[in-house]
């Protein structure tokens, strides 16, 4: 009797261990398959002309230069606009607000925005800017991306500032430093690596964002630096080219996908290194 129970428990345990290891194997295999396809097809499409020529018409040679430029420009502006706002807001939550009901509401709203569907952000900016200006523009794309940057930076800034020991704040206060100076010269400095991590993660996040650009920055087949005109970006070009029927466009789409993934993974690895130094 006792032995029967024992045997049953062991069998159940064995089945469960196999299932758990199996799910890990399934997950890893799926992800390896994706990376493998990405590397094989991506390197196949990668060449020097990808970086030097603009997006081609079907059938002719070309590259992704204008899309890369557009992605870099729009991401850069979005980060420059979004980072200070996010940092200051995160500072309010960690330093001034902490337990107030207002901070509670802001934190809640921020966490919702952090995971809200990015296509909704696109709709919002469309109504706010594109519909009023009556044309698609890189400005709108930049605005949409900044809206995505802000919650990411707020979340990491707050988390990192909360890791700064209170004794540092008390030490600053005890030598007579006013709150604002102690925040800027002591807590921000102590949390610097962590805050930079947040910015890197935000860049990683927006460099692959497609949905919010679809009807804000739209697309542009040519080299353009005019923020008042539609602008190409890597994700949009990938979307357009992959959905087309042309072989050479597919190759460029894979090359673009590889570029984005490489950028995102590099940024995340840097962010992790910085973060581990912070903690």
């Amino acid at each position: 009797m006792n032995r029967a129970i024992y045997a049953r428990r062991r069998t159940v345990n064995g089945i469960f261990l196999v299932l758990s290891a199996g799910s890990a194997a399934i997950g890893i295999i799926a992800l390896v398959l994706i990376l493998y396809a990405l590397l094989m097809n991506g390197f196949g499409g990668l060449s020097a002309s990808v970086f030097t020529q603009d997006t081609p018409a079907p059938g002719s040679a070309g590259g992704l230069a204008n899309a890369i430029l557009g992605s870099v420009m729009m991401s850069a502006v979005a980060v420059v606009v979004g980072t200070p706002i996010g940092m200051l807001a995160g500072t309010y939550l960690a330093e001034y607000g902490r337990h107030s009901w207002l901070a509670f509401v802001i934190r809640f709203v921020n966490d919702i925005l952090l995971s809200a569907p990015s296509i909704i952000i696109g709709l919002f900016i469309y109504q706010l800017l594109v519909a009023r200006m009556h044309h698609f523009s890189a400005w709108a794309g930049m605005a949409a991306l900044s809206v995505i940057v802000i919650p990411v930076v707020v979340r990491t800034t707050e988390n990192m500032l909360l890791l700064v020991p209170n004794t540092l704040r008390e030490a600053a206060a005890s030598i007579g430093a006013p709150r604002a100076i102690s925040i800027r010269a002591v807590t921000w400095r102590a949390a610097r690596a962590g805050i930079v991590t947040g910015v890197l993660l935000a860049i990683a996040r927006i460099s692959g964002e497609t949905a919010p650009l679809l009807f804000t920055a739209l697309n542009n087949q040519f080299w353009s630096t005019d923020p008042n005109a539609p602008m190409a970006s890597l994700p949009i070009v990938i979307f357009q080219f992959a959905n087309s029927a042309y072989e050479d466009w597919h190759r460029l789409a894979w090359a673009g996908a590889l570029l984005i993934t490489a950028t995102v993974l590099t940024l995340s690895i840097f962010a992790r290194l910085l973060e581990s130094r912070q903690r």
């Binding site: 992800l31 996908a257 993934t261 995102v264 993974l265 992790r272």
Partner: peptide, 17 residues
């Protein structure tokens, strides 16, 4: 954790092709 950050368009293009 790194793979959680891979943009969704990558999964889309892999799914399609």
């Amino acid at each position: 954790e790194l793979l959680a950050g891979v943009p969704s368009i990558i999964y889309g293009i892999w799914g399609l092709f």
